[in-house]
Simulated scan of single mutants.
Amino acid sequence: MLHVLQLFSETEPVWSTAAIIEALDTSRSTGYRYLKTLHEAGLLSAVRNGYYSLGPRIIEMDLQMRLTDPLLLASEGVLEELVDKIGHSALLCTAFRDSVLCVGECRAPQSPANRFRRGQRRPLFQGAISKIILAYLPHHRLKAIYPRQRKEIEDAGLGSTWSEFRATLGKMKKDGYSLTVGEFNPGVYGVAAPILTDQKTSVGSVGVAWDEKERRDVDVEHAVLAVKQAATTISERLLDRQRD
């Protein structure tokens, strides 16, 4: 039933009943039952006869996430401080299935509107903010991910064998950060550091990005230190909350 919600997107915000049933490849009776249940729960809204969009309950749930999500609460003020130090937008992300989801952001003045933002996903193998999460995932998760996405891992330059893959991630863990250039947009630098549990596995990452053409004055070493400190602050706050 929840697969219905995954159909809606920025390019397709409204779906007809017939199109939903066809996309789900289910019977009409099952499709109508799903839509009735989701509509009654507020997860879908009827925009006109036989057509639906995402419903108001999702907005309500998003507010609850903003008010109660431990990762967001632990990052309060940290992203703003990063923007002040680096001069460009800061992002807070977490792993979601085999991808990375942006859960928080602080935009710098005049930041381009098309940059990665809250609610968007990116591949787990591209970009600093994704790769550093990958490097600190538990060993059993990496073992499960590798055979399933071996080609994507090799295409991302992370290694053509399991040993090479582990060695690449080990280097990132030793450094404590990831630095990438041009993996999504030419000339755009990304720096990210992991947010860690008490077991030293990742629950997320924090990072900044800037365009070399726009910001030639950014000191990369300074950016790395600032991002690592931000990640340490968030990690420590999370651990403190767990102890309370």
Rank of each mutant, 00 (worst) to 15 (best):
Val103Tyr: 02
Leu71Lys: 13
Lys85His: 03
Arg48Glu: 10
Leu54Met: 01
Ser45Glu: 15
Leu158Cys: 08
Pro138Ser: 09
Asp175Asn: 14
Gly87Trp: 04
Thr180Cys: 04
Gln120Lys: 10
Thr180Ile: 11
Leu142Val: 07
Ile21His: 01
Ser9Gln: 05
Cys93Phe: 07
Tyr32Asn: 14
Thr197Leu: 05
Arg48Val: 04
Ser235Phe: 05
Glu154Trp: 08
Leu44Arg: 07
Leu179Gly: 07
Gly50Cys: 06
Arg57Met: 15
Gly104Val: 09
Thr68Arg: 14
Leu82Ser: 02
Arg216Thr: 11
Gly77Phe: 05
Tyr51Met: 11
Pro109Gly: 04
Gly119Cys: 05
Leu158Tyr: 07
Val14Trp: 01
Ile20Phe: 03
Leu82Tyr: 08
Ser205Gln: 00
Gln149Trp: 08
Val181Pro: 00
Asp198Ser: 12
Leu142Tyr: 03
Arg141Leu: 12
Arg115Leu: 15
Thr68Ile: 11
Leu79Glu: 01
Ser202Cys: 04
Ser9Cys: 04
Ser235Arg: 09
Glu76Thr: 13
Arg33Thr: 13
Leu38Trp: 09
Thr233Ala: 10
Gln199Asn: 11
Arg216His: 11
Pro194Val: 02
Ser27Met: 01
Ala41Lys: 12
His140Glu: 14
Gly77Arg: 06
Leu43Pro: 12
His3Leu: 02
Glu80Leu: 09
Val100Arg: 08
Lys36Tyr: 03
Leu82Asp: 02
Thr94Asn: 02
Arg243Pro: 00
Ser16Val: 01
Val78Gly: 02
Arg241Asn: 11
Pro112Gly: 06
Asp98Met: 09
Lys200Gln: 14
Arg107Met: 11
Ala144Ile: 03
Thr233Glu: 10
Gly182Val: 03
Pro56Trp: 10
Thr26Cys: 15
Glu81His: 13
Asp219Gly: 10
Leu73Tyr: 03
Gln126Lys: 14
Gly159Arg: 09
Gly207Cys: 01
Thr168Arg: 14
Phe165Cys: 09
His222Phe: 09
Arg66Gln: 15
Arg115Ala: 00
Leu158Asn: 04
Asp98Glu: 14
Arg243Asn: 06
Ser130Gly: 05
Leu134Phe: 07
Ser202Glu: 06
Arg107Cys: 05
Ser29Cys: 07
Asp155Trp: 02
Arg241Gln: 10
Asp155Val: 05
Leu43Val: 05
Thr30Lys: 14
Gly159Asp: 03
Glu76Asp: 13
Asp198Cys: 10
Gln229Asp: 14
Val206His: 07
Gln199Glu: 12
Ser16Thr: 15
Ala223His: 04
Glu236Gly: 04
Arg150Ile: 00
Leu7Met: 10
Lys36Phe: 06
Ala90Lys: 03
Thr26Pro: 07
Trp162Arg: 06
Glu154Pro: 00
Arg48His: 08
Gly176Cys: 06
Ala192Ile: 10
Gln242Phe: 04
Pro13Ala: 06
Leu137Pro: 05
Ala156Val: 08
Gln242Arg: 15
Arg28Asn: 09
Arg66Ala: 11
Met1His: 12
Gln199Ile: 00
Val47Gln: 05
Pro13Asp: 01
Ser45Ala: 14
Ala74Glu: 09
Val100Pro: 05
Leu239Ala: 15
Leu92Asp: 03
Asn185Ser: 12
Ala192Ser: 11
His222Arg: 09
Glu76His: 15
Leu79Asn: 01
Leu91Lys: 10
Leu73Gly: 03
Leu137Phe: 04
Leu24Thr: 10
Asp244Phe: 13
Ser99Leu: 05
Thr68Gln: 14
Asp84Met: 12
